[in-house]
Amino acid sequence: MSDLERLHRIKYMIQARKCVPIQDFLEELEISKATFKRDLEYLRDRMNASIIFDRSEGGYRFDKPNSGEKIELPGLWFSEKEVTALVLMQHLLSGLDKGGLIEPHIAPLTSIIDGILGQSNTPAKELRKRLKVFGMSSRKSSIESFEEVGNALLTRKRLHITYYARGKDETTEREISPQRLIFYRDNWYLDAYCHLRNDLRSFAVDCIGKVIITNIKADEISEKQLHEHFAESYGIFSGKAIQRCKLKFSPEKARWVSAETWHGQQVGTFDKEGNYLLEFDYNQDPELVMDILKHGAGVEVLAPASLRKRVQDELLKALSNY
């Protein structure tokens, strides 16, 4: 029996029998008194298990009735390698969330994970020191707004919000039915049905101002409708796809682009010269134009003509500013 399995057994023996004499632990787990004392100290100090010795009953029990039901000791289900993976995952989430929205909620996990790794040869702090995550385009958002949005998502209630649209430089009041939260390009977005526009919209969480959870039940949009509106086109602000984009990347750029996913239903092929031809559907082009321009002379827009002209105009505009 591994150390983790034994700790798990101690917890459930007390949970099942309410009060357990030390001799029962020693016999059933086949351990010494010293090992039991060490395990007990670990459960108390690292897992916050309120286990006490009751002299009147002659055994160990939880300090408060039913408190054992709240101590799930989730880490005890994992091997040390799996817990190491948890450390990396937790640190990765913290690093991605540069806006600071979910960090306060996952921070308590850090102490628990560190406790589980306490008997490992790979300290959690050492792992975190050697993993760096950079979010280059994250924007600061309100934790209060984020929590209200999350609450409405779970309780399936409509939200009354004020929303600042950067493109139009205007603020509007809207009532929306939240559908799902999206973490996209280092920022949070809310997919919702907008009752002002009578259509599906994506709202940048950092642009949501005042938030009020109403008592009105949120309208439910099917997964099929959400997919058709948000997933068939390019980018997050797309809408239903109405155009087909065709791009040709040079052999040099192809080494990177051919391994990337620009769209869930993209089609990519190589021609005889080693150029990479990429096709996918889209609706709006601002985000697409931005990604095309990143590749400079290494990409050519083959179709549609309107997208090709838009990219040319942006290049000419950039040159005129020099």
Rank of each mutant, 00 (worst) to 15 (best):
R308T: 05
D313Y: 05
Y234N: 14
E260S: 07
D313K: 12
D54Y: 03
I116Y: 13
L101M: 02
A254W: 03
I31N: 10
L154Q: 08
K64H: 13
R38G: 02
N121G: 07
R180A: 14
E103H: 00
E279S: 15
L302K: 12
L88Y: 08
R6Q: 15
T261P: 02
A204I: 02
G235P: 13
R9K: 15
F62C: 02
Q243A: 13
S145W: 03
W77S: 14
F36H: 14
R185I: 09
I51C: 01
P104H: 03
I71E: 07
D54G: 03
L92D: 04
S258N: 06
R130G: 04
G150T: 14
A305Y: 08
P304T: 07
V311N: 13
S258K: 13
F134T: 09
L86T: 08
I292T: 10
G296A: 07
E27F: 03
E72G: 11
K246Q: 14
E72Q: 08
R185F: 03
V133R: 07
L288P: 13
I216G: 01
E260L: 15
K168D: 09
E103C: 00
Q266A: 01
Q23I: 07
E260F: 08
Q23S: 14
K129Q: 14
L181R: 05
L293N: 11
W262F: 15
K129H: 06
I221Y: 04
I176T: 07
I52L: 12
T110N: 01
N187A: 07
S306T: 11
P304D: 03
T110I: 12
P65R: 09
I116R: 14
E314Y: 06
S141H: 00
K168W: 06
F183A: 08
H229P: 04
G150S: 12
I213P: 01
D271C: 10
D24A: 05
R128E: 13
I52G: 01
K294C: 10
M89T: 13
H263S: 15
T162W: 01
H8Y: 11
S250F: 04
Y189G: 05
H105K: 03
L293A: 15
A241I: 01
D191Q: 14
L101R: 00
L92Q: 07
R44L: 03
A218V: 09
P108T: 06
R44F: 00
S250P: 10
N187I: 01
G95P: 08
A152D: 00
F25K: 06
V257D: 06
K272P: 00
K125W: 13
Q265P: 02
P286E: 12
E273V: 11
L86S: 08
S233V: 06
E28L: 07
L154G: 00
R255E: 15
Q179Y: 02
L4A: 11
H295W: 09
N121T: 11
R308E: 11
R55Y: 13
D285T: 07
G235D: 06
